[in-house]
């Protein structure tokens, strides 16, 4: 587990650390779910969210431990504190789920997302797009005489902000990976 840089002590058995109030406030939480990389495990996680009516804002998954066949699913979800606690407990019930971490509670955590943007335009718009990309530390990974593909990493709101700026400058297409996140510190 230490190789995965995950803090000891998961939050899946949520009954003891439920926050005191049944509040109606919607909270955004980032969950890291460690699962056995076996067929159908992603379907189990997604099926839980759709079957019980929970939200998925972002979801990323990849095997992170090839010898132990463990995958890390990072889910960004929204809900009242009660719903968030219920999501974690329900995830904990899935047999191939080894651990559930609520990075928002256990945090602070670093969140990063990668996105690639295709922007087409000529003249001033093209120059402005390139200038803004520089400010946002986006890299040009492909170029034609009238288009660029920018690659950008950052927190999701930074990518949203970049998308808002590119839209009037000829944004054609966006592909985003979804959020990957780790707790800060050791």
């Amino acid at each position: 587990m230490s190789a995965l840089h995950i803090k000891k002590g998961s939050t899946r058995h949520s009954a003891y650390n439920l926050r005191p109030t049944f509040s109606d406030v919607q909270e955004r939480h980032t969950l890291a779910v460690l699962v056995e990389n076996e067929p159908g495990v992603l379907a189990r996680v997604i099926g839980l969210f759709s079957g019980r009516g929970y939200n998925i804002e972002s979801l990323t998954v990849a095997e992170v431990d090839h010898t132990g066949h463990l995958s890390r699913i990072t889910i960004v979800t929204k809900g009242t504190p009660q719903v968030i606690e219920q999501i974690k407990a329900q995830l904990g019930r899935i047999i191939p789920v080894h651990d559930v971490h609520d990075l928002t509670v256990e945090g602070p955590a670093v969140e990063r997302e990668l996105a690639i943007f295709k922007v087409a335009g000529e003249g001033d718009k093209r120059v402005e797009a390139l200038r803004l990309a520089d400010i946002f530390r986006a890299n040009v990974v492909d170029s034609t005489l009238n288009s660029f593909i920018f690659e950008i990493t950052g927190a999701p709101d930074k990518i949203d902000a970049f998308a808002d700026l590119m839209r009037p400058l000829g944004l054609v297409e966006v592909a985003r990976t979804g959020v990957a996140a780790l707790l800060r510190g050791d």
């Binding site: 899946r12 058995h13 949520s14 009954a15 439920l18 407990a89 904990g92 019930r93």
Partner: peptide, 17 residues
């Protein structure tokens, strides 16, 4: 025995898993 049963519909004061 199932943590997801606790606080699912009724908030309880003394949860025991």
């Amino acid at each position: 025995i199932d943590p997801s049963s606790i606080n699912k519909v009724i908030r309880v004061d003394i949860p025991i898993v």
